[in-house]
Design a protein around this nucleic acid. Structure first.
Lengths: 132, 132
DNA sequence: GTAGGGGTTCCAGCAACTGGAAGGTCAAGC
DNA sequence: GCTTGACCTTCCAGTTGCTGGAACCCCTAC
């Protein structure tokens, strides 16, 4: 399979697939013309990575997951451990974003948003007497 | 004021302050020894930027906010517009993360996480018959 | 004069791609 | 046989927002 087919089937841009090869996540064969020649196993790996990425695993996490995946004697606790770490990261990020959202949406509500210059958003950002 | 004082008072690392100068967010004076010499206005700007960044504004947003802040004839709608854009970005990101979290936490719950190799997390990532 | 704690510049690197230029390859149609 | 156009290749640069480190200057205190 050429890279275009793999891109269509995996949903990953060709550029991304080349990048994944460059960093050693996949190692497709090469045809006589220099084109990459992807096996079904390569394809499967790319779909695996695409899904893992969409769940928040980093590319390095994916590398680890792939090697666990290929290791018949893996312990499921290793996989679970990685997933829990990612879950914690996600939860921390959500909390952070919700705190931002709370503050910012309060400010947005208070700002009338017309052609006058007075603006609680700017006031809050520049208030010299406030902590933080 | 030297960069160290400003760093302590604004909560920003000196490296970050130098970076903000490099990209033209602030333009502190220089003393005869080549040291940056920060005015109260510079200091105020840095605190402003630090707060805006912590609410999710990008550095380029901060540049725009600073120029609105300095423009006495600004329209509060311009500020509000920026804030709403950021708010939308935050909300979109939260939704995305919550979706990831839902899927991932389900998988984590289903994985027994012991020394056996069978693992619903890997199975879900590699399932060939699944869409997406 | 020397030790330390400032400060300066510049270069490299992080994550994870993405865009673009310059050029080779292949299949189809004339 | 030649052209056209879609594909593929590599390489280099840029994105965002810093951060680390090296090599070096400055200032104050002892």
């Amino acid at each position: 399979m050429n890279i275009g087919d793999v891109a269509r089937r995996s949903g990953l841009p060709a550029k991304t697939i080349r990048y994944y090869e460059e960093i050693g996540l996949i190692r497709p064969d090469r045809g006589g013309n220099g084109y990459r020649d992807f096996s079904d196993a390569d394809m499967h790996k790319l779909i695996f990575v695409q899904r893992a990425r969409s769940l928040g695993f980093s590319v390095e996490d994916c590398r680890a997951l792939l090697s666990l995946w290929e290791d018949r004697k893996r312990a499921s606790s290793d996989v679970r451990g990685l997933a829990v770490t990612v879950l914690d990261r996600i939860e921390a990020k959500v909390s952070e974003l919700l705190a931002m959202k709370a503050t910012l949406s309060t400010l947005v509500e208070r700002c009338h948003g017309d052609d006058r210059p007075d603006c609680p958003i700017l006031e809050s950002l520049s208030d010299a007497d406030r902590a933080g």
